[in-house]
Design a protein around this nucleic acid. Structure first.
Lengths: 171, 171
DNA sequence: CTTATATTTTACTAATTTCTGAAATAACAG
DNA sequence: CTGTTATTTCAGAAATTAGTAAAATATAAG
Protein backbone atom coordinates (compact mmCIF):
# COMPACT_ATOMS: atom_id res chain seq x y z
CA UNK A 1 0.00 0.00 0.00
CA UNK A 2 1.59 3.19 -1.23
CA UNK A 3 -0.09 6.55 -1.62
CA UNK A 4 0.24 8.75 -4.64
CA UNK A 5 1.10 12.38 -3.82
CA UNK A 6 -2.48 13.46 -4.40
CA UNK A 7 -3.80 10.76 -2.11
CA UNK A 8 -1.32 11.67 0.57
CA UNK A 9 -2.36 15.28 0.36
CA UNK A 10 -5.99 14.30 0.70
CA UNK A 11 -5.28 12.14 3.73
CA UNK A 12 -3.22 14.79 5.47
CA UNK A 13 -5.81 17.43 4.84
CA UNK A 14 -8.64 15.23 6.09
CA UNK A 15 -6.57 14.68 9.20
CA UNK A 16 -6.13 18.37 9.84
CA UNK A 17 -9.81 19.00 9.34
CA UNK A 18 -10.57 16.28 11.83
CA UNK A 19 -9.42 18.65 14.52
CA UNK A 20 -12.16 21.12 13.61
CA UNK A 21 -14.78 18.42 13.76
CA UNK A 22 -14.32 16.87 17.14
CA UNK A 23 -12.26 13.93 15.97
CA UNK A 24 -8.54 13.80 16.33
CA UNK A 25 -6.06 13.82 13.52
CA UNK A 26 -5.22 10.14 13.48
CA UNK A 27 -8.84 9.04 13.51
CA UNK A 28 -9.56 11.32 10.64
CA UNK A 29 -6.51 10.28 8.65
CA UNK A 30 -7.40 6.64 8.99
CA UNK A 31 -10.87 7.39 7.81
CA UNK A 32 -9.55 9.23 4.79
CA UNK A 33 -7.18 6.42 3.98
CA UNK A 34 -9.88 3.77 4.13
CA UNK A 35 -12.22 5.98 2.19
CA UNK A 36 -9.75 6.14 -0.68
CA UNK A 37 -8.43 2.61 -0.42
CA UNK A 38 -9.63 0.13 -3.00
CA UNK A 39 -9.23 -2.86 -0.74
CA UNK A 40 -9.76 -3.29 3.00
CA UNK A 41 -6.58 -2.72 5.00
CA UNK A 42 -5.14 -4.28 8.11
CA UNK A 43 -4.32 -2.21 11.15
CA UNK A 44 -0.68 -2.96 10.54
CA UNK A 45 -0.80 -1.55 7.02
CA UNK A 46 -2.56 1.55 8.25
CA UNK A 47 0.02 2.15 10.97
CA UNK A 48 2.65 1.70 8.35
CA UNK A 49 1.31 4.11 5.78
CA UNK A 50 0.41 6.81 8.31
CA UNK A 51 3.47 6.26 10.46
CA UNK A 52 1.68 6.11 13.76
CA UNK A 53 1.81 3.59 16.57
CA UNK A 54 0.00 0.35 16.05
CA UNK A 55 -1.88 0.88 19.30
CA UNK A 56 -3.06 4.25 18.18
CA UNK A 57 -4.55 2.66 15.08
CA UNK A 58 -6.32 0.14 17.24
CA UNK A 59 -8.12 2.73 19.33
CA UNK A 60 -8.83 4.96 16.38
CA UNK A 61 -10.42 2.11 14.46
CA UNK A 62 -12.55 1.36 17.45
CA UNK A 63 -13.77 4.93 17.46
CA UNK A 64 -14.49 4.89 13.74
CA UNK A 65 -16.45 1.70 14.16
CA UNK A 66 -18.45 3.25 16.98
CA UNK A 67 -19.36 6.07 14.64
CA UNK A 68 -20.41 3.48 12.08
CA UNK A 69 -17.97 4.88 9.54
CA UNK A 70 -15.75 1.83 9.33
CA UNK A 71 -16.42 -1.83 9.52
CA UNK A 72 -14.30 -4.87 10.12
CA UNK A 73 -14.19 -7.50 7.41
CA UNK A 74 -12.29 -10.71 6.91
CA UNK A 75 -10.42 -12.04 3.97
CA UNK A 76 -10.41 -15.81 3.53
CA UNK A 77 -7.06 -17.30 4.31
CA UNK A 78 -5.92 -14.33 6.37
CA UNK A 79 -6.56 -14.33 10.04
CA UNK A 80 -5.89 -10.65 10.55
CA UNK A 81 -8.75 -8.17 10.80
CA UNK A 82 -9.23 -5.93 7.82
CA UNK A 83 -11.07 -2.64 7.77
CA UNK A 84 -13.05 -0.79 5.18
CA UNK A 85 -15.02 2.43 5.01
CA UNK A 86 -18.08 3.47 3.07
CA UNK A 87 -17.03 4.75 -0.29
CA UNK A 88 -20.05 6.92 -0.74
CA UNK A 89 -19.68 10.48 0.47
CA UNK A 90 -23.41 10.84 1.05
CA UNK A 91 -23.41 7.92 3.40
CA UNK A 92 -20.55 9.51 5.31
CA UNK A 93 -22.48 12.75 5.43
CA UNK A 94 -25.51 11.02 6.89
CA UNK A 95 -23.50 9.30 9.57
CA UNK A 96 -21.62 12.41 10.54
CA UNK A 97 -24.73 14.54 10.75
CA UNK A 98 -26.46 11.94 12.86
CA UNK A 99 -23.53 11.59 15.21
CA UNK A 100 -23.08 15.31 15.58
CA UNK A 101 -26.73 15.78 16.31
CA UNK A 102 -26.41 13.21 19.07
CA UNK A 103 -23.42 14.93 20.56
CA UNK A 104 -24.16 18.57 19.91
CA UNK A 105 -27.92 18.93 19.91
CA UNK A 106 -29.55 16.20 21.96
CA UNK A 107 -27.87 16.99 25.29
CA UNK A 108 -28.88 20.61 24.95
CA UNK A 109 -32.45 19.66 24.13
CA UNK A 110 -32.55 17.65 27.32
CA UNK A 111 -31.16 20.52 29.31
CA UNK A 112 -33.54 23.05 27.81
CA UNK A 113 -36.51 20.87 28.58
CA UNK A 114 -35.39 20.68 32.17
CA UNK A 115 -34.73 24.41 32.37
CA UNK A 116 -38.01 25.49 30.87
CA UNK A 117 -39.90 23.08 33.09
CA UNK A 118 -38.18 24.09 36.27
CA UNK A 119 -37.80 27.81 35.75
CA UNK A 120 -40.23 29.61 38.02
CA UNK A 121 -40.71 33.18 39.13
CA UNK A 122 -37.22 33.57 40.48
CA UNK A 123 -36.08 33.53 36.85
CA UNK A 124 -36.88 36.70 34.89
CA UNK A 125 -39.68 36.35 32.39
CA UNK A 126 -37.50 37.43 29.46
CA UNK A 127 -35.00 34.73 30.29
CA UNK A 128 -37.69 32.09 30.47
CA UNK A 129 -38.98 33.18 27.09
CA UNK A 130 -35.54 33.07 25.59
CA UNK A 131 -35.01 29.53 26.80
CA UNK A 132 -38.42 28.61 25.53
CA UNK A 133 -37.65 30.00 22.08
CA UNK A 134 -34.34 28.24 21.99
CA UNK A 135 -36.03 24.98 22.83
CA UNK A 136 -38.73 25.47 20.23
CA UNK A 137 -36.21 26.22 17.51
CA UNK A 138 -34.03 23.26 18.36
CA UNK A 139 -37.07 21.03 18.40
CA UNK A 140 -37.97 22.23 14.95
CA UNK A 141 -34.49 21.45 13.69
CA UNK A 142 -34.72 18.03 15.24
CA UNK A 143 -38.08 17.29 13.65
CA UNK A 144 -36.82 18.32 10.26
CA UNK A 145 -33.79 16.14 10.76
CA UNK A 146 -35.91 13.18 11.82
CA UNK A 147 -37.96 13.45 8.67
CA UNK A 148 -35.19 14.12 6.25
CA UNK A 149 -32.58 11.69 7.44
CA UNK A 150 -34.70 8.68 6.80
CA UNK A 151 -35.37 9.61 3.22
CA UNK A 152 -33.76 7.37 0.65
CA UNK A 153 -30.75 8.93 -0.98
CA UNK A 154 -32.65 10.30 -3.95
CA UNK A 155 -35.15 11.87 -1.61
CA UNK A 156 -32.51 13.58 0.44
CA UNK A 157 -30.91 14.97 -2.68
CA UNK A 158 -34.28 16.15 -3.97
CA UNK A 159 -35.05 17.97 -0.77
CA UNK A 160 -31.65 19.59 -0.64
CA UNK A 161 -32.14 20.83 -4.16
CA UNK A 162 -35.41 22.52 -3.29
CA UNK A 163 -33.14 24.83 -1.33
CA UNK A 164 -31.50 25.93 -4.55
CA UNK A 165 -34.68 27.61 -5.66
CA UNK A 166 -35.87 28.74 -2.27
CA UNK A 167 -35.23 32.41 -2.87
CA UNK A 168 -37.14 32.44 -6.09
CA UNK A 169 -40.07 30.60 -4.59
CA UNK A 170 -40.29 32.96 -1.65
CA UNK A 171 -41.06 35.96 -3.82
CA UNK B 1 -25.58 40.55 38.38
CA UNK B 2 -26.56 37.31 40.01
CA UNK B 3 -27.70 34.17 38.25
CA UNK B 4 -30.69 32.15 39.29
CA UNK B 5 -29.99 28.41 39.60
CA UNK B 6 -31.65 27.71 36.26
CA UNK B 7 -29.59 30.36 34.54
CA UNK B 8 -26.42 29.04 36.08
CA UNK B 9 -27.24 25.57 34.88
CA UNK B 10 -27.83 26.87 31.38
CA UNK B 11 -24.54 28.75 31.34
CA UNK B 12 -22.54 25.81 32.63
CA UNK B 13 -24.13 23.48 30.12
CA UNK B 14 -23.52 25.85 27.24
CA UNK B 15 -19.92 25.99 28.36
CA UNK B 16 -19.54 22.24 28.29
CA UNK B 17 -21.12 22.02 24.88
CA UNK B 18 -18.69 24.62 23.66
CA UNK B 19 -16.02 21.96 23.76
CA UNK B 20 -17.91 19.85 21.22
CA UNK B 21 -18.21 22.82 18.90
CA UNK B 22 -14.71 24.08 18.51
CA UNK B 23 -14.98 26.87 21.05
CA UNK B 24 -13.58 26.61 24.51
CA UNK B 25 -15.56 26.51 27.68
CA UNK B 26 -15.05 30.08 28.76
CA UNK B 27 -15.94 31.53 25.37
CA UNK B 28 -19.09 29.52 25.34
CA UNK B 29 -20.04 30.38 28.89
CA UNK B 30 -19.62 34.06 28.22
CA UNK B 31 -21.78 33.76 25.17
CA UNK B 32 -24.48 31.98 27.17
CA UNK B 33 -24.33 34.59 29.87
CA UNK B 34 -24.70 37.49 27.45
CA UNK B 35 -27.42 35.63 25.61
CA UNK B 36 -29.48 35.44 28.78
CA UNK B 37 -28.56 38.79 30.23
CA UNK B 38 -31.12 41.54 30.00
CA UNK B 39 -28.58 44.33 29.94
CA UNK B 40 -25.13 44.55 28.41
CA UNK B 41 -22.38 43.54 30.83
CA UNK B 42 -18.87 44.75 31.45
CA UNK B 43 -15.93 42.40 31.22
CA UNK B 44 -15.45 42.84 34.94
CA UNK B 45 -18.97 41.69 35.72
CA UNK B 46 -18.55 38.69 33.45
CA UNK B 47 -15.29 37.66 35.11
CA UNK B 48 -17.03 38.04 38.41
CA UNK B 49 -20.07 35.94 37.65
CA UNK B 50 -18.16 33.18 35.87
CA UNK B 51 -15.20 33.28 38.23
CA UNK B 52 -12.52 33.39 35.59
CA UNK B 53 -9.58 35.70 35.12
CA UNK B 54 -10.29 39.13 33.76
CA UNK B 55 -7.73 38.60 31.00
CA UNK B 56 -9.44 35.43 29.94
CA UNK B 57 -12.68 37.34 29.52
CA UNK B 58 -10.87 39.88 27.41
CA UNK B 59 -9.60 37.35 24.87
CA UNK B 60 -12.82 35.39 24.87
CA UNK B 61 -14.85 38.50 24.13
CA UNK B 62 -12.53 39.28 21.29
CA UNK B 63 -13.17 35.85 19.84
CA UNK B 64 -16.92 36.18 20.22
CA UNK B 65 -16.78 39.52 18.46
CA UNK B 66 -14.79 37.99 15.63
CA UNK B 67 -17.54 35.43 15.21
CA UNK B 68 -20.04 38.27 15.15
CA UNK B 69 -21.90 36.81 18.10
CA UNK B 70 -21.21 39.62 20.52
CA UNK B 71 -20.86 43.32 20.08
CA UNK B 72 -19.43 46.09 22.17
CA UNK B 73 -21.76 48.86 23.24
CA UNK B 74 -21.42 51.89 25.43
CA UNK B 75 -23.58 53.24 28.16
CA UNK B 76 -23.67 57.00 28.55
CA UNK B 77 -21.88 58.13 31.65
CA UNK B 78 -19.86 54.93 31.94
CA UNK B 79 -16.55 54.71 30.26
CA UNK B 80 -16.19 50.96 30.50
CA UNK B 81 -16.95 48.79 27.52
CA UNK B 82 -20.13 46.81 27.74
CA UNK B 83 -20.99 43.72 25.75
CA UNK B 84 -24.17 42.25 24.47
CA UNK B 85 -25.18 39.24 22.40
CA UNK B 86 -28.00 38.64 19.96
CA UNK B 87 -31.01 37.49 21.84
CA UNK B 88 -32.50 35.66 18.91
CA UNK B 89 -31.56 32.02 18.66
CA UNK B 90 -32.10 31.98 14.90
CA UNK B 91 -29.59 34.72 14.44
CA UNK B 92 -27.11 32.73 16.50
CA UNK B 93 -27.84 29.70 14.37
CA UNK B 94 -27.15 31.61 11.18
CA UNK B 95 -23.87 32.93 12.45
CA UNK B 96 -22.70 29.59 13.74
CA UNK B 97 -23.58 27.77 10.54
CA UNK B 98 -21.81 30.37 8.48
CA UNK B 99 -18.72 30.28 10.60
CA UNK B 100 -18.58 26.50 10.67
CA UNK B 101 -18.97 26.35 6.94
CA UNK B 102 -15.99 28.67 6.63
CA UNK B 103 -13.89 26.56 8.91
CA UNK B 104 -15.09 23.07 8.13
CA UNK B 105 -16.18 23.07 4.52
CA UNK B 106 -14.43 25.78 2.56
CA UNK B 107 -10.86 24.59 3.12
CA UNK B 108 -11.84 21.11 2.01
CA UNK B 109 -13.53 22.46 -1.11
CA UNK B 110 -10.32 24.22 -1.99
CA UNK B 111 -8.31 21.09 -1.44
CA UNK B 112 -10.65 18.90 -3.44
CA UNK B 113 -10.54 21.30 -6.36
CA UNK B 114 -6.78 21.11 -6.32
CA UNK B 115 -6.76 17.33 -5.99
CA UNK B 116 -9.23 16.67 -8.78
CA UNK B 117 -7.41 19.07 -11.06
CA UNK B 118 -3.99 17.68 -10.39
CA UNK B 119 -4.74 13.98 -10.16
CA UNK B 120 -3.45 12.26 -13.24
CA UNK B 121 -2.83 8.70 -14.27
CA UNK B 122 -0.61 7.87 -11.34
CA UNK B 123 -3.74 8.07 -9.20
CA UNK B 124 -6.15 5.13 -9.62
CA UNK B 125 -9.28 5.92 -11.55
CA UNK B 126 -11.57 4.85 -8.70
CA UNK B 127 -9.82 7.23 -6.36
CA UNK B 128 -10.14 10.10 -8.79
CA UNK B 129 -13.84 9.40 -9.13
CA UNK B 130 -14.28 9.30 -5.41
CA UNK B 131 -12.64 12.67 -5.01
CA UNK B 132 -14.73 14.00 -7.84
CA UNK B 133 -17.94 12.81 -6.18
CA UNK B 134 -16.92 14.25 -2.88
CA UNK B 135 -16.28 17.58 -4.51
CA UNK B 136 -19.58 17.54 -6.36
CA UNK B 137 -21.52 16.76 -3.22
CA UNK B 138 -19.82 19.43 -1.18
CA UNK B 139 -20.42 21.93 -3.93
CA UNK B 140 -24.10 21.08 -3.89
CA UNK B 141 -24.23 21.61 -0.14
CA UNK B 142 -22.49 24.92 -0.56
CA UNK B 143 -24.88 26.09 -3.24
CA UNK B 144 -27.85 25.18 -1.12
CA UNK B 145 -26.31 27.02 1.77
CA UNK B 146 -25.62 30.09 -0.35
CA UNK B 147 -29.22 30.25 -1.40
CA UNK B 148 -30.81 29.49 1.89
CA UNK B 149 -28.72 31.57 4.22
CA UNK B 150 -29.63 34.81 2.60
CA UNK B 151 -33.32 34.22 2.93
CA UNK B 152 -35.13 36.46 5.38
CA UNK B 153 -35.95 34.73 8.61
CA UNK B 154 -39.45 33.76 7.55
CA UNK B 155 -38.10 32.25 4.36
CA UNK B 156 -35.54 30.17 6.18
CA UNK B 157 -38.19 28.86 8.50
CA UNK B 158 -40.50 28.11 5.60
CA UNK B 159 -37.85 26.14 3.78
CA UNK B 160 -36.90 24.21 6.89
CA UNK B 161 -40.51 23.28 7.36
CA UNK B 162 -40.77 21.84 3.88
CA UNK B 163 -38.48 19.19 5.30
CA UNK B 164 -41.18 18.18 7.74
CA UNK B 165 -43.28 16.89 4.90
CA UNK B 166 -40.53 15.65 2.69
CA UNK B 167 -41.23 11.99 3.24
CA UNK B 168 -44.87 12.34 2.35
CA UNK B 169 -44.08 14.33 -0.78
CA UNK B 170 -41.57 11.79 -2.00
CA UNK B 171 -44.12 9.03 -2.24
C1' DC C 1 0.55 66.74 32.91
C1' DT C 2 -0.70 63.43 36.46
C1' DT C 3 -3.38 60.09 38.27
C1' DA C 4 -6.85 56.72 38.29
C1' DT C 5 -9.30 53.33 35.82
C1' DA C 6 -10.01 50.15 32.00
C1' DT C 7 -8.13 46.97 28.73
C1' DT C 8 -4.77 44.12 26.26
C1' DT C 9 -0.58 41.61 25.86
C1' DT C 10 2.55 38.39 27.36
C1' DA C 11 5.10 34.86 29.73
C1' DC C 12 4.10 31.30 32.40
C1' DT C 13 1.31 27.40 34.77
C1' DA C 14 -2.33 24.10 34.67
C1' DA C 15 -5.29 21.02 32.43
C1' DT C 16 -6.47 18.24 28.77
C1' DT C 17 -5.80 15.47 24.90
C1' DT C 18 -3.18 12.62 21.93
C1' DC C 19 0.16 9.27 21.11
C1' DT C 20 3.54 5.76 22.19
C1' DG C 21 5.80 1.52 23.79
C1' DA C 22 5.48 -2.21 26.75
C1' DA C 23 2.78 -5.56 28.85
C1' DA C 24 -1.38 -8.27 28.86
C1' DT C 25 -4.70 -10.83 26.43
C1' DA C 26 -6.63 -13.41 22.75
C1' DA C 27 -6.71 -16.43 18.75
C1' DC C 28 -4.91 -19.72 16.18
C1' DA C 29 -1.47 -23.36 13.99
C1' DG C 30 1.17 -27.11 14.52
C1' DC D 1 -0.14 -27.98 25.09
C1' DT D 2 3.37 -24.74 23.08
C1' DG D 3 4.86 -21.27 20.34
C1' DT D 4 3.53 -17.68 17.18
C1' DT D 5 0.97 -13.93 15.49
C1' DA D 6 -2.65 -10.49 16.15
C1' DT D 7 -4.97 -7.26 19.02
C1' DT D 8 -6.07 -4.50 23.06
C1' DT D 9 -5.10 -2.23 27.31
C1' DC D 10 -2.73 0.91 29.98
C1' DA D 11 0.64 3.93 32.21
C1' DG D 12 3.05 7.58 31.22
C1' DA D 13 5.51 10.95 27.66
C1' DA D 14 4.72 14.52 24.42
C1' DA D 15 2.02 17.94 22.50
C1' DT D 16 -1.60 21.04 22.53
C1' DT D 17 -4.84 24.16 24.47
C1' DA D 18 -6.81 26.90 28.16
C1' DG D 19 -6.38 29.91 31.84
C1' DT D 20 -3.85 33.01 35.10
C1' DA D 21 -1.31 36.88 37.03
C1' DA D 22 1.45 40.55 36.22
C1' DA D 23 3.25 43.99 33.29
C1' DA D 24 2.34 47.09 29.56
C1' DT D 25 -0.69 50.03 27.19
C1' DA D 26 -4.49 52.96 26.52
C1' DT D 27 -8.06 56.28 27.87
C1' DA D 28 -10.21 59.67 30.20
C1' DA D 29 -10.91 62.86 34.41
C1' DG D 30 -9.25 66.28 37.14
Amino acid sequence: MKLTPVMERFVLHWGEMGGRWGVNRTVSQIHALLYLSEAPLTAEEIADVLQVARSNVSTSLRELQSWGLVKMVHITGDRRDHFEAHHDVREIFRVVVEERKKREIDPTLTLLRACTTEAGNETPKAVRERMQNTLAFMELLTSVYDEVHQLPDAGLMAWLKTGLKARKLMR
